[in-house]
Amino acid sequence: MLYRITVRNADGEKLEIVVEMSEDEVRALAEELRKAGYEVRVEPIPEGEEP
């Protein structure tokens, strides 16, 4: 499935990426980023919607 991941650092800089991963993989990635001090938001992209 496609997911949009938005990551912000302490300075407020934002990075937005689209990935194709399983829900478990995305959850693990988000958890690791949060542990590293980043603010993370994950949104699933519905099938048929443009990323």
Rank of each mutant, 00 (worst) to 15 (best):
A30L: 11
E43I: 12
P44L: 08
R27M: 08
V40T: 02
L15C: 07
E47K: 14
E13Y: 15
R8D: 03
K14D: 08
V42K: 00
E20S: 13
V26R: 01
E49K: 09
D24E: 12
V7F: 15
R27W: 14
E43L: 12
S22H: 07
M21D: 01
E43D: 09
D11M: 13
G48Y: 10
E47F: 13
D24W: 13
L29I: 06
E23G: 07
M21P: 00
L33H: 02
G37W: 15
N9C: 03
D11L: 15
A30Q: 05
N9T: 07
S22E: 08
I17D: 01
E32Y: 15
I5M: 06
V19C: 04
R4S: 02
M1V: 07
L33R: 01
R8W: 15
E32N: 14
A10Y: 14
R8L: 13
Y3S: 00
L33F: 14
E25L: 09
E47A: 09
E31F: 15
I17R: 06
V42M: 04
I17G: 02
Y38T: 01
E32Q: 14
L29K: 05
K35R: 14
I45W: 12
E16F: 14
V42W: 13
E13K: 13
V7S: 05
A28L: 12
K14V: 10
V42L: 05
E43H: 11
V19E: 01
R34I: 04
M21C: 03
L29S: 01
G12Q: 04
L2S: 07
E39N: 15
I17Q: 04
E13R: 14
E32W: 15
P46Y: 11
Y38K: 03
A30M: 07
I5D: 00
G48Q: 15
Y38H: 04
V19I: 07
G37K: 02
V26N: 00
A36K: 14
E43V: 13
M21I: 05
I45G: 03
E23T: 09
E32S: 14
E39C: 08
P46V: 13
I5R: 00
T6A: 03
E16D: 07
M1C: 04
R8V: 11
I45A: 04
V7I: 10
E43K: 05
V26S: 03
E50Q: 11
L2P: 03
A36E: 03
V42A: 03
L29G: 01
E16C: 04
Y3H: 03
A36H: 08
K35E: 02
N9P: 03
E25K: 07
E23D: 07
E13Q: 13
P46R: 09
D11Y: 12
E31I: 13
V7Y: 15
A28G: 08
R4Y: 05
E50I: 13
P46C: 07
E39M: 13
A28W: 07
A30T: 07
S22R: 08
L2T: 06
D24M: 11
L29T: 04
M21Q: 02
R27H: 12
D11A: 14
V18H: 06
A30R: 04
G48N: 13
K35S: 06
E49D: 10
E39P: 01
R34V: 07
A36S: 10
V40I: 06
E32T: 15
R4W: 06
G48W: 10
L15A: 09
G37P: 01
M21T: 04
G48I: 12
L33G: 01
E13W: 15
P44R: 07
R4M: 04
A10L: 13
E43W: 08
G12A: 03
S22G: 08
Y38P: 00
E16H: 07
T6L: 11
